[in-house]
Design a protein around this nucleic acid. Structure first.
Lengths: 370, 370
DNA sequence: TTGAAAGCGCTAACAC
DNA sequence: GTGTTAGCGCTTTCAA
């Protein structure tokens, strides 16, 4: 007892010297003030246990007077229920991610979860580091968004994490990327990348375009590979073969779209349509085309992918493939949190569809003469 | 002992029945495997304490073999160091917030903090609820972004939370909104809203515009009030008075910009320039103007506020006021985390400046004749 | 309906 | 250098 008092005194001393607060009230303080025991206070908070109305009132009053808030960590530790969902993206700034983030955040808060945000800046190393941190946090679900690197080592690492997370009771969720394989404990919410690209390419081909440039192929990135695959399949279905010279490698950025379109123009390549890897790439291409005196869609048609908000603000408004961003996010959270209820639907593929706006039409005259 | 064993057995039983694992290894497991004590394991992890090289190696090996990860909650509970920063926004989707979020996330991870994301959907009630949750989490800093409601009750509540957070050792940070007053323990990182609007209005006025419409005034929102104030001051400095009929109330949305510009056109109002409350509002206005056959900037100049990425993608590229989004985010985190080192600079105002692009120029002929 | 007691997993003071 | 001993604040049996 004496020792306890001494320890307490020592602590109080330290409190004074540090700038801000360690003087938070605890269940015990509340209990003392209400003249009950700590367990009773806990029961009042939990709500899931009978407590006499009078007692409950006293406790509530004490909590209010002390401005009490539970310590989420202590609760997580004792009660093993953690209540957080982690959201891992490349870059919050991209509208693509932002909208998925919104879906995730909404569903998470609807399910009473907090949402942790982590950015990886496209660095595969950081993805792994971040997933590790989430394991420490014991997040209910760890949602990783965006194309995956089709790299054996990387995938093995992810598979490892899927298991590691599973072991601590967490769930790995892959959004917009392919499954890791059979038996890997992970939820996958994907959208039909290939079909979207196929539909768009078909739209362009049936408008009469025969030489379509594809901007921003990212070798080794699942998303890109699938889009290229839909692009190719659409050609093949009409007995055509895409010209490899018209497929330009590059990143999913506005800057790349601008650069690539300029090069295309400078090289004098023959093309009447541009299918950009993403809407951002399309936005860059549009600028380059405009600066090069090429009219869209009169001289060249331009299509994008993603249907992010900027698609309606560029000029002309962009024909693109719609991806159900928010729904991806919401579905990811829902599926992961209720995986016991839906064990069979842990791999979901949402649909995509094309949205035709003003940037595409049939091919005009050859570019040279315009 | 028997009882303990029984309890343990009971738990194991439950483990089996629940889908995924509660079978995580703890410091104790690692300690046992490495043949050392728990404290030694803890010391190895902390790194900040001398441990024999051989011992350290054994522990590290055991941790690897057991695939051990610390329990962040247990750590937070014991060590009182929490390592998270909370970020509270209206809507992750807005590029305005997204870029601040990036700054926050970057600085937070640079400082070894995790970042929690919370959305309020413009609901003042939810702001308060969210701040309360963050108090439970004992976040190092709670960063609230965006204009504040100039409403006494709301401000009182925020003031209350500033104190409450302070008591649990957290710090309230207000980004892009005015301070709560003297003696309130909060960090404020603002940007010069008024000066930005002043500079832009002056730009327009000196180009010769005399009838400038202001789109999207939001009564009671600090940001909007300050912008209007800069707008007015610029007029007054030239001995002019803005025409109240040209100041349209409405939200900071693209949809409102569109609607407002259409109304303006329909009403036959006389104006040669539009100053939009935000870039999104400007994007909507641009569309309405184009649809109405009004050329920008030949017939009407359009200016925005914020300088979000879309400003360069709209047509014509938008003249706007640049707000240092990322820097706001970074500064917020830095200041809050090191408040003891910089007690004097807990209220910082970052500069804004105008960026002139293609959407503004001198007034052309009267609109009627165009 | 309530209280007492035993941890959850970790860190930190204190001994050796 | 390393082990022992106490808790951090809460939930949760087990008794009463």
């Amino acid at each position: 007892m004496n020792e306890a008092a001494q320890v307490s005194a020592g602590k109080t001393g330290r409190r004074t010297e540090s700038a801000a607060g360690r003087d938070v009230s605890t269940v015990r303080d509340v209990a003392r003030r209400a003249g009950v025991s700590a367990s009773t206070v806990s029961r009042v908070m939990g709500g899931t246990y009978p407590v006499a109305a009078a007692t409950r009132a006293k406790v509530l009053k004490a909590m209010r007077e002390l401005d009490y808030v539970v310590n989420a960590h202590a609760r997580a530790l004792g009660g093993s229920t953690n209540k957080t969902v982690a959201f891992v993206v490349d870059d919050v700034t991209g509208p693509f991610y932002a909208h998925i983030a919104r879906g995730v955040e909404e569903q998470a808060s609807a399910e009473g979860r907090l949402c942790m945000l982590c950015t990886t800046h496209g660095d595969p190393q950081r993805v792994l580091a971040v997933v590790e941190m989430m394991r420490e946090q014991r997040a209910d679900a760890v949602i990783v968004v965006g194309g995956a690197w089709e790299d054996k080592a990387y995938q093995d690492r992810m598979t490892h994490f899927a298991h590691a997370l599973d072991r601590v009771g967490s769930r790995l969720v892959l959004v917009g990327r392919p499954p890791l394989g059979e038996g890997v404990p992970a939820t996958v919410v994907d959208y039909d990348n290939e079909a979207g690209a196929f539909a768009m390419t078909t739209h362009l081909l049936s408008a009469g375009h025969r030489r379509i440039a594809y901007l921003a192929r990212v070798p080794g990135l699942s998303t890109s590979t699938q889009r290229i695959s839909g692009f190719t399949r659409a050609h093949e279905l009409m007995g055509l073969t895409p010209d490899p010279a018209l497929i330009l490698d590059g990143e999913f950025t506005r800057a790349h779209g601008y650069r690539a379109a300029r090069e295309l123009l400078a090289s004098g390549a023959d093309f009447s349509a541009v299918f950009a890897g993403t809407d951002m790439v399309a936005a860059g291409a549009l600028q380059a085309l405009r600066e090069g005196g090429v009219r869209v869609p009169e001289d060249v048609s331009v299509a994008g992918y993603d249907d992010i908000p900027v698609a309606i603000d560029v000029y002309p408004a962009l024909t693109t493939v719609h991806v159900p961003h928010e729904e991806l996010g919401r579905t990811a959270v829902r599926l992961a949190l209720h995986r016991d209820e839906f064990p069979e639907s842990q791999h979901q593929v949402l649909g995509t569809h094309i949205v035709i706006r003003a940037s595409t039409r049939g091919p005009g005259r050859p570019r040279e003469t315009s």
